[in-house]
Design a binder for these strands. Sequence first.
DNA 1: AAGGATAAACAACAGGGTGTTCATTTTTAG
DNA 2: CTAAAAATGAACACCCTGTTGTTTATCCTT
Lengths: 205, 205
Amino acid sequence: MRGTDHRSRITRLLIRRALTELLRQKPLQSITVKELCEVAGINRGTFYAHYIDLYALREEMEGEMLQDFQQALSPLLEEEQPDERTPLKITAGIFQCLKDNAEVCTMTLGPYGDKAFAAKLINIGREKCVDSYRRYFTNASRKQLEYYYAFVSAGCIGLLEKWLSEGMTSSAEEVAEIAQGIMMSGVGFLGQAKGAERSGDREDA
Amino acid sequence: MRGTDHRSRITRLLIRRALTELLRQKPLQSITVKELCEVAGINRGTFYAHYIDLYALREEMEGEMLQDFQQALSPLLEEEQPDERTPLKITAGIFQCLKDNAEVCTMTLGPYGDKAFAAKLINIGREKCVDSYRRYFTNASRKQLEYYYAFVSAGCIGLLEKWLSEGMTSSAEEVAEIAQGIMMSGVGFLGQAKGAERSGDREDA
DNA sequence: AAGGATAAACAACAGGGTGTTCATTTTTAG
DNA sequence: CTAAAAATGAACACCCTGTTGTTTATCCTT
């Protein structure tokens, strides 16, 4: 990588914006360096002065998103104020962080996103969550805990994709409540089933 | 596509096997026609005699998997024997079908799989499921139903990926029970939480 | 079994993207 | 203002692509 020159920073910004733009339309593998440089309005040689290839570029951007993500999460996961961090607040914090990084989310988790990155995201939370489950559900088998995590982590990303596809019009809290509700109660989240109906108090609009 | 000649069928078999083989190692976009032909042991020109490009090849294979899938599902979804098709049996049938098509599943849903195909799979069940939900959960909003489906369909695919990564050692029924359990009860699937413990009857080994 | 038809193998081609190098111009920083 | 750093444009050999034309092998029919 080149230095912290004013021009260097601008060039890298142009490159990143071009990639974000192009990843809205097609997968990385269908994007050529030449194409990206035309969109960015820079010389092709200049690209190679900054990055080895398109994959290195995406990796850098994903890495920064990952840092943001972990940083935004750390206060929520700290041991110091266990009274403050209710499950819902943690979930809401996660979705808020995702909303703040909407562009990168689209890039990495949208239709032309990077499956490997999604897997990485999931893995970050895995141990912590499974350990946490294990403390509360002492009778569940390790296998059950792992499968539960596999399901709900993928489910959350599916939810996020849906949210993205709708332009993230709902608030982070709202989506977090949905995720929370499903993870906690399954279909129970949808309210009383027909036939077992009662004077319903539910949480929809 | 060429005719049904004996040689043609063998050639196509070789091509398909080569693609399946290569997709274990890298995404389609990183595979060249040249490479595939070397693996398949055929001439590069011969490939173009059968397929337009690698994407057409994959599409054909995915299409066949999709047909298998819908065919395996149709008896489960028919209206004729509604007493036979309990939710668990349907779910088990789905996972059994996925297990029968393990190779294609790895190809399309594994680490180097095709996000678009997963999305297509999800969309197939969407309307049917949401309509079905709507009948049972008359008080839930459309948005809740859609978000619930987005979550659990993605969750099921996440579960499938986990299952695949473990070589599908568990039975289809077992995985179906897990999926069913989570979808129905959320964390409740994991048994009684600590603090609210009672003489537990759970379903693990 | 012979012969016409079909498909595969082979070779050659232009076209386009890659990654690198070099000389040149522009911009930044001291 | 000057020297260093960065961007540019052009050129390059390389590899993959997709196509075409020719030759060889295999098939199906008679």
